[in-house]
Simulated assay, not measured.
Amino acid sequence: MGYQYIYGPVNSRRLGLSLGVDLLGAKVCSFNCVYCERGRTDQLTVERKEYVAYKEVTNELKDFLAAGPKLNYISFSGCGEPLLHKYFGRISAYLKENFPRYKQALLTNSSLITAEIMPELKNLDLIVPSLDAVSENTFKKINRPHKTVEIDKIITNIAKAKKELKAKMWLEIFLLPGINDHQEELELFKKAVQTIKADKIQLNSLDRPGAENWLEKMSKDRLREIADFLGDNVEIVAGY
């Protein structure tokens, strides 16, 4: 069987052997991040739809997982924001009911972690939300979000998810020199980290060419300085 919506398994630096699930099939996202290795967003939206057929996704998962492959995680990631798929919760529940041995991870830009959607995350074992800025200006410069998305609400909702959901949380901060590493922004990051209380803070930087060619990768020494500043449970995941 040829697969359209699942890929891998791939060896991930953070997740180990991971089977990826793409619920969008195209570059659809609520952000248009300058560093995205998938390039610029084709459809900037917060509208939840059945971008790819729910039944086709679950059929592919059923076919692949029936043989009982060894996996560390089934990860929802793909080309854009996974939570834009309106049946995300159903697909996650299908895996929990039919293949409970596999852990589920969500890689998300955090924009759709809202009170309405949060119940759909109850079957996840790991949530990896992104937080690339805390000030509004820096947020707009890096993530170039849909006009309805506000950074203050994102931080509040990530903290609420950490408090109310059973899943572990690894908060990813993507750092770009000269953009979100100035002292004022770092102070705001530190305050946000203390509010969210994630299990881990993971610092990342440019590994492959992003959507914009003017970006630079942050040095490992600078990442270490920022890790020390932010406090405990901070690790560097950027590849060097």
Results as ranks from 00 to 15, higher is better:
Arg38Asn: 15
Tyr7Leu: 09
Asn32Gly: 07
Lys55Asp: 14
Glu60Ser: 08
Glu56Asn: 13
Asp63Thr: 10
Glu60Cys: 07
Leu71His: 09
Arg14Phe: 11
Thr58Trp: 03
Val34Ala: 06
Val57Met: 08
Tyr54Gly: 01
Arg14Leu: 08
Ser77Met: 09
Glu47Asp: 14
Cys36Gln: 08
Ile74Ser: 10
Asp63Lys: 00
Leu23Asp: 04
Thr58Ile: 15
Leu61Asn: 05
Gly25Lys: 04
Lys70Val: 15
Val10Met: 12
Pro69Gln: 10
Arg40Thr: 12
Asn72Val: 04
Val34Pro: 02
Ser12Ala: 14
Lys62Asp: 15
Gly16Ala: 10
Asn11Ala: 10
Ser18Val: 05
Tyr35Lys: 04
Tyr51Thr: 04
Gly8Glu: 10
Leu15Trp: 14
Leu71Glu: 10
Phe76Lys: 03
Arg14Asp: 03
Lys27Glu: 03
Arg13Ile: 13
Gly39Asp: 11
Asp63Ala: 12
Asn72Tyr: 02
Arg38Leu: 13
Asn72Gly: 02
Gly68Phe: 08
Val28Arg: 02
Gln43Met: 14
Phe64Asp: 05
Val28Asp: 02
Thr45Asn: 06
Val28Tyr: 05
Glu50Ile: 05
Lys55Gly: 13
Gln43Leu: 15
Lys62Arg: 15
Ala67His: 06
Val28Pro: 05
Tyr7Met: 09
Tyr7Ser: 03
Glu47Ile: 01
Ala67Lys: 15
Tyr51Ser: 01
Lys49Gly: 00
Leu61Glu: 06
Val34Gly: 00
Lys62Ile: 03
Tyr35Gly: 04
Ser18Met: 09
Cys33Arg: 06
Cys36Arg: 00
Ser30Met: 00
Thr58His: 02
Pro9Thr: 10
Leu23Gly: 03
Glu37Gln: 15
Ala66Arg: 13
Ser77His: 00
Cys29Tyr: 01
Pro9Phe: 07
Ser77Ile: 11
Lys70Ser: 12
Leu65Lys: 05
Asp42Glu: 14
Gly20Cys: 09
Ser75Phe: 01
Val57Lys: 05
Leu24Thr: 03
Glu50Leu: 03
Gly16Trp: 11
Cys29Val: 00
Tyr73Glu: 10
Phe31Trp: 13
Tyr54Arg: 13
Gly68Pro: 04
Asp42Ser: 15
Leu24Lys: 01
Lys70Met: 11
Gly25Arg: 07
Gly8Asp: 08
Lys49Gln: 15
Arg48Ala: 14
Pro9Lys: 07
Glu60Met: 09
Glu56Val: 04
Phe64Ser: 01
Arg40Leu: 07
Glu60Leu: 07
Arg48Cys: 13
Tyr54His: 12
Tyr51Ala: 00
Arg48Glu: 13
Cys36Leu: 05
Pro9Val: 11
Gly8Gln: 11
Phe64His: 05
Arg48Met: 13
Ala66Thr: 09
Asp63His: 14
Arg13Lys: 15
Leu65His: 07
Val21Ile: 14
Ala53Gln: 11
Gly25Leu: 06
Tyr73Lys: 07
Ala53Ser: 14
Tyr35Ile: 04
Cys29Asn: 10
Arg40Trp: 03
Tyr35Phe: 15
Ser18Phe: 08
Thr41Leu: 09
Cys29Ser: 13
Asn59His: 09
Phe64Leu: 08
Ala26Ser: 15
Glu50Trp: 06
Ser30His: 00
Val21Thr: 06
